[in-house]
Design a protein around this nucleic acid. Structure first.
Length: 423
RNA sequence: GGAGAAUUGGCAGAGUGGUCGAAUGCGGCAGUCUUGAAAACUGUUGAGGGUCACACCUCCGGGGGUUCGAAUCCCUCAUUCUCCGCCA
Protein backbone atom coordinates (compact mmCIF):
# COMPACT_ATOMS: atom_id res chain seq x y z
CA UNK A 1 0.00 0.00 0.00
CA UNK A 2 0.97 3.61 -0.32
CA UNK A 3 2.95 5.22 2.45
CA UNK A 4 1.11 7.85 4.44
CA UNK A 5 4.00 10.34 4.59
CA UNK A 6 4.23 10.10 0.82
CA UNK A 7 0.51 10.79 0.45
CA UNK A 8 0.77 13.69 2.86
CA UNK A 9 3.65 15.32 0.97
CA UNK A 10 2.45 14.52 -2.54
CA UNK A 11 -1.29 14.77 -2.32
CA UNK A 12 -1.75 16.22 -5.80
CA UNK A 13 0.67 13.79 -7.39
CA UNK A 14 -1.24 10.87 -5.91
CA UNK A 15 -4.61 12.20 -7.04
CA UNK A 16 -3.34 12.99 -10.53
CA UNK A 17 -1.56 9.65 -10.79
CA UNK A 18 -4.61 7.67 -9.77
CA UNK A 19 -6.73 9.69 -12.18
CA UNK A 20 -4.83 7.89 -14.94
CA UNK A 21 -6.55 4.75 -13.70
CA UNK A 22 -9.85 6.55 -13.82
CA UNK A 23 -9.78 6.26 -10.06
CA UNK A 24 -11.09 9.30 -8.27
CA UNK A 25 -8.91 9.39 -5.18
CA UNK A 26 -9.63 12.88 -3.97
CA UNK A 27 -12.04 12.06 -1.18
CA UNK A 28 -10.05 9.05 -0.03
CA UNK A 29 -6.80 10.95 0.06
CA UNK A 30 -8.31 13.75 2.09
CA UNK A 31 -9.76 11.26 4.53
CA UNK A 32 -6.43 9.55 4.85
CA UNK A 33 -4.76 12.83 5.71
CA UNK A 34 -7.41 13.74 8.26
CA UNK A 35 -7.34 10.32 9.88
CA UNK A 36 -3.58 10.37 10.01
CA UNK A 37 -3.70 13.69 11.82
CA UNK A 38 -6.21 12.26 14.25
CA UNK A 39 -4.04 9.24 14.72
CA UNK A 40 -0.99 11.28 15.55
CA UNK A 41 -2.91 13.49 17.94
CA UNK A 42 -4.25 10.47 19.78
CA UNK A 43 -0.83 8.88 19.82
CA UNK A 44 0.69 11.95 21.39
CA UNK A 45 -2.02 12.14 24.04
CA UNK A 46 -1.61 8.51 24.85
CA UNK A 47 2.16 8.78 24.97
CA UNK A 48 1.98 11.65 27.41
CA UNK A 49 -0.43 9.80 29.64
CA UNK A 50 1.76 6.76 29.66
CA UNK A 51 4.83 8.85 30.34
CA UNK A 52 3.15 10.32 33.40
CA UNK A 53 2.07 6.94 34.58
CA UNK A 54 5.55 5.50 34.07
CA UNK A 55 7.07 8.31 36.08
CA UNK A 56 4.63 7.70 38.91
CA UNK A 57 5.43 4.01 38.95
CA UNK A 58 9.08 4.82 39.31
CA UNK A 59 8.35 7.15 42.21
CA UNK A 60 6.21 4.54 43.92
CA UNK A 61 8.97 2.00 43.63
CA UNK A 62 11.46 4.41 45.17
CA UNK A 63 9.11 5.34 47.98
CA UNK A 64 8.57 1.70 48.88
CA UNK A 65 12.28 1.16 48.92
CA UNK A 66 12.84 3.99 51.30
CA UNK A 67 10.01 2.73 53.50
CA UNK A 68 7.49 5.46 52.81
CA UNK A 69 4.54 3.20 52.23
CA UNK A 70 1.90 5.77 53.08
CA UNK A 71 3.10 8.21 50.45
CA UNK A 72 3.37 5.42 47.95
CA UNK A 73 -0.22 4.43 48.51
CA UNK A 74 -1.30 7.98 47.91
CA UNK A 75 0.37 8.01 44.54
CA UNK A 76 -1.20 4.70 43.66
CA UNK A 77 -4.61 6.30 43.65
CA UNK A 78 -3.45 8.75 41.04
CA UNK A 79 -2.35 6.01 38.73
CA UNK A 80 -5.79 4.46 38.49
CA UNK A 81 -7.10 7.67 36.88
CA UNK A 82 -4.29 7.63 34.36
CA UNK A 83 -4.93 4.01 33.67
CA UNK A 84 -8.53 4.66 32.76
CA UNK A 85 -7.51 7.52 30.51
CA UNK A 86 -4.86 5.53 28.71
CA UNK A 87 -7.25 2.66 28.19
CA UNK A 88 -9.82 4.80 26.34
CA UNK A 89 -7.10 6.55 24.42
CA UNK A 90 -5.54 3.36 23.20
CA UNK A 91 -8.94 2.01 22.18
CA UNK A 92 -9.60 5.17 20.20
CA UNK A 93 -6.18 4.95 18.70
CA UNK A 94 -6.60 1.43 17.46
CA UNK A 95 -9.99 2.12 15.89
CA UNK A 96 -8.47 5.12 14.13
CA UNK A 97 -5.55 3.03 12.94
CA UNK A 98 -7.92 0.38 11.72
CA UNK A 99 -9.98 2.93 9.79
CA UNK A 100 -6.85 4.39 8.28
CA UNK A 101 -5.60 1.00 7.21
CA UNK A 102 -8.90 0.18 5.54
CA UNK A 103 -8.72 3.40 3.58
CA UNK A 104 -5.18 2.67 2.50
CA UNK A 105 -6.23 -0.75 1.28
CA UNK A 106 -8.64 0.96 -1.09
CA UNK A 107 -5.95 3.03 -2.77
CA UNK A 108 -4.22 1.32 -5.69
CA UNK A 109 -0.62 2.03 -6.56
CA UNK A 110 0.21 5.28 -8.32
CA UNK A 111 1.17 4.45 -11.91
CA UNK A 112 4.65 5.34 -13.09
CA UNK A 113 4.75 8.74 -14.77
CA UNK A 114 5.26 7.15 -18.18
CA UNK A 115 2.12 5.02 -17.90
CA UNK A 116 -0.59 6.35 -20.22
CA UNK A 117 -3.99 7.25 -18.88
CA UNK A 118 -6.78 4.96 -19.93
CA UNK A 119 -9.83 3.16 -18.78
CA UNK A 120 -9.60 -0.32 -20.23
CA UNK A 121 -7.50 -2.67 -22.29
CA UNK A 122 -8.60 -0.85 -25.42
CA UNK A 123 -6.24 1.95 -24.45
CA UNK A 124 -3.14 -0.17 -23.93
CA UNK A 125 -0.20 0.75 -26.14
CA UNK A 126 1.41 -1.80 -28.38
CA UNK A 127 5.11 -1.10 -28.10
CA UNK A 128 6.67 -4.14 -29.71
CA UNK A 129 5.73 -6.78 -32.23
CA UNK A 130 7.87 -9.57 -33.55
CA UNK A 131 7.73 -12.94 -35.24
CA UNK A 132 6.00 -14.21 -38.29
CA UNK A 133 2.47 -15.38 -38.26
CA UNK A 134 2.62 -18.74 -40.04
CA UNK A 135 0.50 -19.49 -43.05
CA UNK A 136 -1.54 -22.48 -42.02
CA UNK A 137 -2.89 -25.20 -44.27
CA UNK A 138 -6.54 -25.29 -45.19
CA UNK A 139 -8.46 -26.90 -42.42
CA UNK A 140 -6.27 -25.61 -39.60
CA UNK A 141 -8.12 -25.84 -36.31
CA UNK A 142 -8.26 -24.08 -32.97
CA UNK A 143 -6.40 -25.85 -30.18
CA UNK A 144 -9.46 -27.40 -28.54
CA UNK A 145 -10.17 -29.29 -31.76
CA UNK A 146 -6.53 -30.29 -32.09
CA UNK A 147 -6.49 -31.44 -28.48
CA UNK A 148 -9.32 -33.81 -29.24
CA UNK A 149 -7.95 -34.92 -32.59
CA UNK A 150 -4.63 -36.00 -31.12
CA UNK A 151 -6.09 -36.97 -27.74
CA UNK A 152 -3.67 -34.85 -25.73
CA UNK A 153 -6.00 -32.72 -23.62
CA UNK A 154 -9.31 -34.00 -22.32
CA UNK A 155 -11.67 -31.25 -21.25
CA UNK A 156 -14.65 -33.57 -20.77
CA UNK A 157 -12.72 -35.79 -18.43
CA UNK A 158 -11.76 -32.75 -16.39
CA UNK A 159 -15.44 -31.82 -16.24
CA UNK A 160 -16.25 -35.17 -14.75
CA UNK A 161 -13.50 -35.16 -12.20
CA UNK A 162 -13.67 -31.51 -11.12
CA UNK A 163 -15.73 -29.27 -13.34
CA UNK A 164 -15.19 -26.82 -16.18
CA UNK A 165 -11.77 -25.26 -16.29
CA UNK A 166 -9.81 -28.27 -15.05
CA UNK A 167 -8.42 -29.96 -18.15
CA UNK A 168 -6.67 -33.31 -18.08
CA UNK A 169 -3.45 -33.53 -20.08
CA UNK A 170 -2.67 -36.93 -21.50
CA UNK A 171 0.19 -38.71 -23.22
CA UNK A 172 2.22 -36.36 -25.36
CA UNK A 173 0.12 -33.47 -24.08
CA UNK A 174 1.19 -34.17 -20.51
CA UNK A 175 4.77 -34.66 -21.60
CA UNK A 176 4.73 -31.36 -23.47
CA UNK A 177 3.50 -29.61 -20.35
CA UNK A 178 6.33 -31.09 -18.33
CA UNK A 179 8.79 -30.14 -21.06
CA UNK A 180 7.62 -26.55 -21.06
CA UNK A 181 7.92 -26.29 -17.29
CA UNK A 182 11.43 -27.72 -17.32
CA UNK A 183 12.45 -25.53 -20.24
CA UNK A 184 11.14 -22.35 -18.62
CA UNK A 185 12.81 -23.15 -15.31
CA UNK A 186 16.09 -23.84 -17.08
CA UNK A 187 15.90 -20.55 -18.94
CA UNK A 188 15.20 -18.70 -15.70
CA UNK A 189 17.90 -20.35 -13.63
CA UNK A 190 20.41 -19.80 -16.42
CA UNK A 191 19.50 -16.13 -16.27
CA UNK A 192 20.43 -16.13 -12.59
CA UNK A 193 17.12 -16.84 -10.87
CA UNK A 194 17.21 -19.28 -7.97
CA UNK A 195 14.68 -22.05 -8.26
CA UNK A 196 12.16 -22.45 -5.43
CA UNK A 197 9.42 -24.96 -4.77
CA UNK A 198 6.73 -23.10 -2.93
CA UNK A 199 3.58 -23.97 -1.00
CA UNK A 200 0.37 -24.04 -3.00
CA UNK A 201 -1.74 -23.00 -0.05
CA UNK A 202 -1.02 -19.80 1.81
CA UNK A 203 -2.33 -18.01 4.86
CA UNK A 204 -4.21 -14.76 5.06
CA UNK A 205 -1.18 -12.67 5.98
CA UNK A 206 0.55 -13.71 2.77
CA UNK A 207 -2.45 -12.68 0.69
CA UNK A 208 -2.43 -9.26 2.31
CA UNK A 209 1.30 -9.05 1.79
CA UNK A 210 1.12 -9.15 -1.99
CA UNK A 211 -2.23 -7.38 -2.27
CA UNK A 212 -4.59 -10.23 -3.26
CA UNK A 213 -6.49 -9.37 -0.11
CA UNK A 214 -8.62 -7.50 0.37
CA UNK A 215 -8.74 -6.56 -3.32
CA UNK A 216 -9.43 -9.97 -4.84
CA UNK A 217 -11.23 -11.77 -2.07
CA UNK A 218 -13.73 -13.53 -4.31
CA UNK A 219 -11.20 -14.61 -6.91
CA UNK A 220 -9.34 -17.10 -4.76
CA UNK A 221 -10.33 -20.55 -3.61
CA UNK A 222 -10.46 -20.58 0.16
CA UNK A 223 -10.37 -23.41 2.63
CA UNK A 224 -12.38 -22.03 5.51
CA UNK A 225 -11.62 -24.92 7.80
CA UNK A 226 -7.93 -24.10 8.05
CA UNK A 227 -8.27 -20.57 6.69
CA UNK A 228 -5.89 -21.14 3.82
CA UNK A 229 -6.06 -19.85 0.27
CA UNK A 230 -5.10 -21.74 -2.89
CA UNK A 231 -2.54 -19.61 -4.63
CA UNK A 232 -3.72 -17.72 -7.72
CA UNK A 233 -0.07 -17.29 -8.74
CA UNK A 234 3.38 -18.17 -7.42
CA UNK A 235 3.81 -14.46 -6.84
CA UNK A 236 2.02 -14.89 -3.52
CA UNK A 237 4.20 -17.50 -1.81
CA UNK A 238 7.25 -16.34 -3.76
CA UNK A 239 7.08 -12.71 -2.74
CA UNK A 240 6.12 -13.59 0.81
CA UNK A 241 9.46 -15.32 1.11
CA UNK A 242 10.55 -11.75 1.80
CA UNK A 243 7.84 -10.70 4.22
CA UNK A 244 9.27 -9.16 7.40
CA UNK A 245 12.76 -9.34 6.02
CA UNK A 246 15.54 -6.83 6.50
CA UNK A 247 18.26 -7.24 3.89
CA UNK A 248 21.72 -5.86 3.57
CA UNK A 249 22.11 -3.66 0.54
CA UNK A 250 24.81 -6.02 -0.71
CA UNK A 251 22.27 -8.85 -0.92
CA UNK A 252 20.36 -7.02 -3.67
CA UNK A 253 19.27 -7.80 -6.26
CA UNK A 254 17.52 -11.09 -5.58
CA UNK A 255 15.82 -13.16 -8.24
CA UNK A 256 13.83 -16.32 -7.66
CA UNK A 257 11.79 -18.52 -9.95
CA UNK A 258 9.29 -21.22 -9.26
CA UNK A 259 6.79 -23.44 -10.96
CA UNK A 260 3.38 -23.80 -9.35
CA UNK A 261 -0.12 -24.59 -10.40
CA UNK A 262 -2.39 -21.55 -10.09
CA UNK A 263 -5.99 -21.61 -8.96
CA UNK A 264 -8.51 -18.97 -9.91
CA UNK A 265 -12.22 -18.90 -9.45
CA UNK A 266 -12.66 -16.57 -12.45
CA UNK A 267 -16.13 -15.68 -11.28
CA UNK A 268 -18.01 -13.81 -13.96
CA UNK A 269 -16.04 -15.02 -16.98
CA UNK A 270 -17.94 -16.32 -19.94
CA UNK A 271 -18.06 -16.65 -23.71
CA UNK A 272 -15.24 -17.17 -26.18
CA UNK A 273 -12.74 -16.11 -23.50
CA UNK A 274 -13.18 -19.37 -21.65
CA UNK A 275 -13.04 -21.72 -24.61
CA UNK A 276 -10.43 -24.47 -24.42
CA UNK A 277 -7.27 -23.38 -22.67
CA UNK A 278 -8.06 -19.68 -22.84
CA UNK A 279 -9.23 -19.37 -19.26
CA UNK A 280 -8.96 -22.07 -16.62
CA UNK A 281 -9.54 -22.58 -12.92
CA UNK A 282 -6.32 -24.49 -12.60
CA UNK A 283 -3.30 -23.85 -14.75
CA UNK A 284 0.47 -24.07 -14.58
CA UNK A 285 2.82 -21.16 -14.52
CA UNK A 286 6.49 -20.49 -14.01
CA UNK A 287 7.07 -17.19 -12.31
CA UNK A 288 10.06 -14.92 -11.83
CA UNK A 289 10.25 -12.59 -8.86
CA UNK A 290 12.80 -9.90 -8.10
CA UNK A 291 13.69 -7.79 -5.10
CA UNK A 292 15.55 -4.70 -6.21
CA UNK A 293 17.16 -1.53 -5.01
CA UNK A 294 14.77 1.34 -5.86
CA UNK A 295 17.41 2.95 -8.06
CA UNK A 296 17.64 -0.15 -10.20
CA UNK A 297 14.10 -1.47 -10.36
CA UNK A 298 13.17 -0.12 -13.79
CA UNK A 299 16.44 -1.33 -15.16
CA UNK A 300 15.58 -4.74 -13.80
CA UNK A 301 12.07 -4.43 -15.17
CA UNK A 302 13.39 -3.99 -18.70
CA UNK A 303 15.79 -6.84 -18.11
CA UNK A 304 12.81 -9.06 -17.33
CA UNK A 305 11.10 -7.92 -20.53
CA UNK A 306 14.19 -8.87 -22.55
CA UNK A 307 14.32 -12.20 -20.79
CA UNK A 308 10.75 -13.09 -21.71
CA UNK A 309 11.31 -11.87 -25.27
CA UNK A 310 14.26 -14.19 -25.53
CA UNK A 311 12.13 -17.18 -24.57
CA UNK A 312 9.42 -16.35 -27.10
CA UNK A 313 12.03 -15.91 -29.80
CA UNK A 314 13.43 -19.33 -29.03
CA UNK A 315 9.95 -20.80 -29.21
CA UNK A 316 9.49 -18.93 -32.49
CA UNK A 317 6.07 -17.69 -31.57
CA UNK A 318 4.71 -14.42 -32.98
CA UNK A 319 4.18 -12.05 -30.07
CA UNK A 320 3.64 -8.46 -29.13
CA UNK A 321 4.16 -6.40 -26.02
CA UNK A 322 1.58 -4.03 -24.60
CA UNK A 323 2.28 -1.28 -22.18
CA UNK A 324 -0.81 -1.28 -20.03
CA UNK A 325 -2.69 1.94 -19.52
CA UNK A 326 -3.55 3.14 -16.02
CA UNK A 327 -6.98 1.54 -15.95
CA UNK A 328 -5.73 -1.89 -16.96
CA UNK A 329 -2.68 -1.92 -14.69
CA UNK A 330 -3.17 -4.21 -11.72
CA UNK A 331 -4.12 -2.69 -8.38
CA UNK A 332 -0.70 -2.92 -6.68
CA UNK A 333 1.40 -2.34 -9.79
CA UNK A 334 3.09 0.88 -10.90
CA UNK A 335 3.87 -0.37 -14.37
CA UNK A 336 2.90 -3.50 -16.25
CA UNK A 337 3.81 -4.87 -19.66
CA UNK A 338 1.77 -7.73 -21.05
CA UNK A 339 3.06 -10.23 -23.57
CA UNK A 340 0.60 -11.71 -26.01
CA UNK A 341 1.06 -14.56 -28.42
CA UNK A 342 -0.83 -14.57 -31.67
CA UNK A 343 -3.00 -17.61 -31.84
CA UNK A 344 -3.36 -18.10 -35.54
CA UNK A 345 -6.23 -20.52 -35.72
CA UNK A 346 -8.29 -18.44 -33.33
CA UNK A 347 -7.11 -15.28 -35.01
CA UNK A 348 -6.61 -13.52 -31.71
CA UNK A 349 -3.97 -12.47 -29.24
CA UNK A 350 -3.59 -14.43 -26.02
CA UNK A 351 -1.96 -13.00 -22.92
CA UNK A 352 0.88 -15.23 -21.82
CA UNK A 353 2.95 -13.07 -19.54
CA UNK A 354 2.55 -10.02 -17.41
CA UNK A 355 5.58 -8.25 -15.99
CA UNK A 356 5.08 -5.69 -13.25
CA UNK A 357 7.03 -3.34 -11.06
CA UNK A 358 5.29 -2.79 -7.74
CA UNK A 359 7.87 -0.33 -6.51
CA UNK A 360 7.34 -0.08 -2.74
CA UNK A 361 3.63 -0.91 -2.78
CA UNK A 362 4.05 -4.56 -1.83
CA UNK A 363 7.22 -3.97 0.18
CA UNK A 364 5.33 -1.56 2.41
CA UNK A 365 2.80 -4.22 3.28
CA UNK A 366 5.41 -6.93 3.47
CA UNK A 367 7.81 -4.86 5.56
CA UNK A 368 10.52 -5.79 3.10
CA UNK A 369 13.42 -3.46 3.71
CA UNK A 370 17.12 -3.18 3.21
CA UNK A 371 19.75 -1.26 5.09
CA UNK A 372 20.90 1.43 2.69
CA UNK A 373 24.34 2.97 2.38
CA UNK A 374 23.43 5.56 5.01
CA UNK A 375 22.52 2.82 7.44
CA UNK A 376 18.83 3.65 7.23
CA UNK A 377 16.17 1.04 6.60
CA UNK A 378 14.48 1.59 3.29
CA UNK A 379 11.69 -0.22 1.48
CA UNK A 380 12.87 -2.36 -1.41
CA UNK A 381 11.13 -2.65 -4.76
CA UNK A 382 9.45 -5.89 -5.80
CA UNK A 383 8.78 -7.08 -9.32
CA UNK A 384 7.41 -10.16 -10.91
CA UNK A 385 6.50 -11.67 -14.20
CA UNK A 386 5.32 -14.87 -15.77
CA UNK A 387 8.08 -16.73 -17.45
CA UNK A 388 5.77 -18.19 -18.64
CA UNK A 389 2.13 -19.17 -18.21
CA UNK A 390 1.61 -22.59 -19.74
CA UNK A 391 -1.88 -23.03 -21.18
CA UNK A 392 -1.87 -20.19 -23.66
CA UNK A 393 1.69 -20.87 -24.69
CA UNK A 394 0.55 -24.40 -25.31
CA UNK A 395 -2.45 -23.13 -27.26
CA UNK A 396 -0.12 -20.93 -29.29
CA UNK A 397 2.20 -23.81 -30.04
CA UNK A 398 -0.60 -26.17 -31.01
CA UNK A 399 -2.23 -23.64 -33.30
CA UNK A 400 0.88 -22.12 -34.87
CA UNK A 401 2.80 -25.32 -35.30
CA UNK A 402 0.02 -27.46 -36.73
CA UNK A 403 0.64 -29.09 -40.10
CA UNK A 404 -1.30 -31.59 -42.07
CA UNK A 405 0.92 -34.32 -40.65
CA UNK A 406 0.58 -33.28 -37.07
CA UNK A 407 1.79 -30.74 -34.59
CA UNK A 408 5.47 -30.02 -34.77
CA UNK A 409 7.42 -29.35 -31.62
CA UNK A 410 9.51 -26.17 -31.40
CA UNK A 411 13.12 -27.13 -31.73
CA UNK A 412 14.25 -25.92 -28.31
CA UNK A 413 11.68 -28.17 -26.68
CA UNK A 414 12.61 -31.43 -28.41
CA UNK A 415 15.38 -32.26 -25.93
CA UNK A 416 12.72 -31.95 -23.23
CA UNK A 417 9.87 -33.79 -24.95
CA UNK A 418 11.87 -36.55 -26.56
CA UNK A 419 9.65 -36.36 -29.65
CA UNK A 420 9.39 -33.86 -32.49
CA UNK A 421 5.81 -34.24 -33.60
CA UNK A 422 2.41 -34.97 -32.13
CA UNK A 423 0.49 -37.11 -34.57
C1' G B 1 -2.88 -38.44 17.91
C1' G B 2 -0.18 -38.63 23.23
C1' A B 3 3.81 -36.61 26.58
C1' G B 4 7.55 -33.03 27.56
C1' A B 5 10.58 -28.58 26.36
C1' A B 6 10.97 -24.08 23.98
C1' U B 7 9.81 -19.12 21.24
C1' U B 8 14.29 -12.74 23.34
C1' G B 9 17.69 -7.79 18.53
C1' G B 10 20.36 -9.41 11.35
C1' C B 11 21.98 -14.40 13.70
C1' A B 12 23.35 -17.18 18.19
C1' G B 13 22.31 -16.65 23.24
C1' A B 14 21.90 -14.69 28.76
C1' G B 15 18.25 -12.62 31.57
C1' U B 16 12.30 -15.06 36.86
C1' G B 17 8.79 -8.44 39.30
C1' G B 18 11.40 -1.89 39.35
C1' U B 19 18.54 -0.45 38.44
C1' C B 20 16.22 -4.21 31.26
C1' G B 21 15.24 -2.15 25.07
C1' A B 22 17.81 -6.04 27.31
C1' A B 23 24.63 -9.06 29.10
C1' U B 24 27.89 -11.63 25.82
C1' G B 25 29.46 -13.63 21.12
C1' C B 26 29.01 -13.49 15.78
C1' G B 27 27.77 -10.43 11.81
C1' G B 28 27.40 -5.13 9.95
C1' C B 29 29.52 -0.14 9.84
C1' A B 30 33.69 3.41 10.92
C1' G B 31 38.73 3.86 12.31
C1' U B 32 44.05 2.26 13.69
C1' C B 33 47.84 -0.91 11.70
C1' U B 34 49.14 -2.61 6.34
C1' U B 35 51.67 -1.22 -0.41
C1' G B 36 46.66 -3.71 -0.40
C1' A B 37 43.88 -7.48 1.95
C1' A B 38 43.44 -10.72 6.13
C1' A B 39 44.33 -10.95 11.29
C1' A B 40 44.51 -8.00 15.63
C1' C B 41 42.93 -3.72 18.24
C1' U B 42 39.45 0.67 19.13
C1' G B 43 34.75 2.73 18.53
C1' U B 44 29.81 2.07 16.87
C1' U B 45 25.40 -0.84 15.75
C1' G B 46 17.63 -3.48 17.29
C1' A B 47 12.76 -1.95 15.18
C1' G B 48 8.40 1.21 14.88
C1' G B 49 5.77 5.77 16.22
C1' G B 50 6.62 10.91 17.39
C1' U B 51 9.52 15.76 16.92
C1' C B 52 12.48 21.01 12.92
C1' A B 53 15.60 18.54 16.41
C1' C B 54 15.26 16.68 21.31
C1' A B 55 11.94 14.83 24.84
C1' C B 56 8.71 11.01 25.01
C1' C B 57 5.92 6.35 23.74
C1' U B 58 5.54 1.16 22.00
C1' C B 59 7.75 -3.59 20.93
C1' C B 60 11.28 -9.78 24.28
C1' G B 61 5.93 -15.46 19.24
C1' G B 62 0.11 -13.42 18.87
C1' G B 63 -3.99 -12.08 22.12
C1' G B 64 -5.89 -11.35 27.09
C1' G B 65 -5.10 -10.89 32.52
C1' U B 66 -2.65 -9.90 37.61
C1' U B 67 0.29 -5.54 39.55
C1' C B 68 1.60 1.23 41.15
C1' G B 69 5.22 -1.48 37.95
C1' A B 70 5.89 -7.52 33.55
C1' A B 71 10.82 -10.16 28.90
C1' U B 72 10.09 -12.15 33.99
C1' C B 73 3.72 -14.28 37.22
C1' C B 74 -1.33 -16.31 35.27
C1' C B 75 -4.75 -17.70 31.05
C1' U B 76 -5.20 -18.64 25.91
C1' C B 77 -3.80 -19.37 20.84
C1' A B 78 0.02 -20.28 17.26
C1' U B 79 4.62 -22.20 15.94
C1' U B 80 9.17 -25.07 16.68
C1' C B 81 11.98 -29.07 18.85
C1' U B 82 12.46 -33.99 21.45
C1' C B 83 10.31 -38.77 22.63
C1' C B 84 6.20 -42.27 21.60
C1' G B 85 2.32 -43.86 18.18
C1' C B 86 0.49 -43.92 13.11
C1' C B 87 1.70 -43.29 8.04
C1' A B 88 2.84 -41.52 2.31
Amino acid sequence: MLQVPFIRDNKEVVIAGLAKRHFDAKALVEQVIILDEERRALQTKLDNTLAESNALSKDIGNLYKSGKAAEANQLKEKTSVLKEASKTLSEDLSTTEEKLKNLLYQLPNVPHESVPAGKSEAENEEIFNEGNVPKLYDGAQPHWELAKKYDIIDFELGNKISGAGFPVYKGKGARLQRALIAYFLDKNTTAGYTEYQLPHLVNEASCYGTGQLPDKEGQMYHDSRDDLYLIPTAEVPGTNVFRDVLLNESELPIGITGYTPCFRREAGSYGADVRGLNRLHQFDKVEIIRVEHPDNSYNAFHGMIEHVKDILRELKLPFRILKLCGGDTGFPSAMTYDFEVFSTAQDRWLEISSVSNFETYQANRLKLRFKNSEGKNELAHTLNGSSLALPRVLAGILENYQTEKGIEIPEVLIPYTGFSIID
